[in-house]
């Protein structure tokens, strides 16, 4: 396939899965002629028709509820919620129905639905269009939570999400839509729950995902020039998360730094840090650290929004400070 964007990679995955399986369809606002907020559905309605690429009313509860109904009745819907912020309008259906139907009905039914909720900052979208809510969904038993960071992953993981019989919260990052990368169109679905070591290193384990991968890799490069070798792990799937890969790395480096764009308080970094502290306390050479957004709504003004973003310099200084502790 060559080099394509993160948005094009998702479009390719959906197109391939819809060609492969007539039970796969998509529904959401503006996915028809408009092709989605980032062109991730562009021209798919032309190829598959309006019954399989369904433009819906602005009715998130019923977008989600109907997808669940259609999923338990033999189809495999892909739900587009446009922004994770609007996913909250469908939170009841996701949490009380999709996540629980299989369990509370005693295994009579599966809910093979993909729930696309793009997360993260996007240049001044302000408080209601910038949130990273991944930790909310991780907290709900029954849900799989995926957050791809690269075009190749947005292709291979979306394929996997569509083939999953579990409901999958699929969180693309809005600022990654236009990023480019090599994508193998014939790539197999990526296994859910498997992290990727994006850079090997021996001094410190940096765990990140989604929109913070790029800055984390840049920071690792900068740290290297100061003599600190950072291993960067892209979690890719937040639930189930790849505890083995993270634990193996921390056992080697003795240091854990988690970097995410979500609010630090109650963010998923807290879970990773706590798990490492519980299981690998003796291997730690210094206290784990987390970097995330302050606990404020995301402000509109550029200098204020910038304060909410974890800067590569912060990552570098945290890494250096952790090395200095031991």
């Amino acid at each position: 396939m060559g080099v394509i964007t993160y948005a094009q990679a998702a479009r390719l995955a959906l197109q391939q899965e819809m060609q492969r399986d007539p039970r796969v369809w998509a529904l959401g606002e503006d996915i028809g002629p408009e092709g989605g907020v980032a062109g991730q559905y562009l021209d798919l309605q032309r190829e598959f028709g309006r019954h399989r690429i369904v433009d819906t009313p602005i009715s998130e509860s019923t977008i989600m509820g109907s997808a669940i109904g259609a999923a338990i009745c033999g189809t495999r819907p892909v739900v587009e919620l446009r922004y994770a912020d609007f996913g909250l309008c469908a939170a009841d259906e996701i949490v009380n129905q999709a996540a629980k139907a299989r369990y509370m009905l005693g295994g009579q039914v599966r809910v093979p639905v993909v729930i696309r909720q793009p997360i993260g900052f996007r240049e001044g979208m302000a408080a209601q269009h910038s949130q990273s809510t991944e930790a909310w969904w991780v907290h709900i038993p029954g849900l799989v939570v995926v957050a791809p960071a690269t075009p190749a992953d947005n292709h291979a993981l979306l394929k996997a999400a569509i083939r999953s019989d579990d409901p999958v919260i699929y969180m693309e990052h809005k600022e990654l839509w236009t990023t480019t990368g090599e994508v193998d169109a014939q790539a197999a679905p990526a296994p859910l729950g498997r992290a990727a070591i994006r850079r090997e290193g021996g001094d410190l384990t940096l765990v990140t995902w989604s929109g913070m991968l790029g800055d984390s890799l840049a920071a690792a490069e900068a740290a290297q020039s100061k003599g600190v070798s950072v291993e960067v792990i892209d979690l890719r799937t937040l639930w189930p998360w790849d505890r083995d890969t993270v634990f193996d790395s921390v056992a080697r480096t003795g240091r854990l730094l988690v970097v995410h764009q979500a609010v630090k308080v109650g963010g998923f970094g807290a879970e990773i840090t706590a798990e490492v502290a519980e299981h690998l306390f003796g291997a730690l050479r210094c206290a784990p650290r987390r970097l995330g957004a302050p606990r404020t709504p995301v402000p509109y003004a550029q200098p204020l929004e910038a304060l909410c973003r974890v800067a590569p310099t912060q990552i570098v200084s945290s890494a250096l400070a952790m090395l200095a502790e031991t």
Binding site: R23, W25, H51, R52, S61, T62, M64, G65, S66, A67, I68, G69, A70, A71, I72, C73, G74, T75, P77, D92, E93, N96, Q97, A101, L105, Q108, V109
Partner: peptide
């Protein structure tokens, strides 16, 4: 489900949105 009963539901009106989705699946 062997009798096509999609279930009682603990959240008022949620069974209705599920039902329209079932109808959408029937159509598809």
């Amino acid at each position: 489900f062997s009798l096509s009963i999609l279930g009682a539901n603990g959240v008022v009106a949620d069974g209705v949105t599920i039902a329209v989705g079932a109808a959408q699946a029937v159509r598809l």
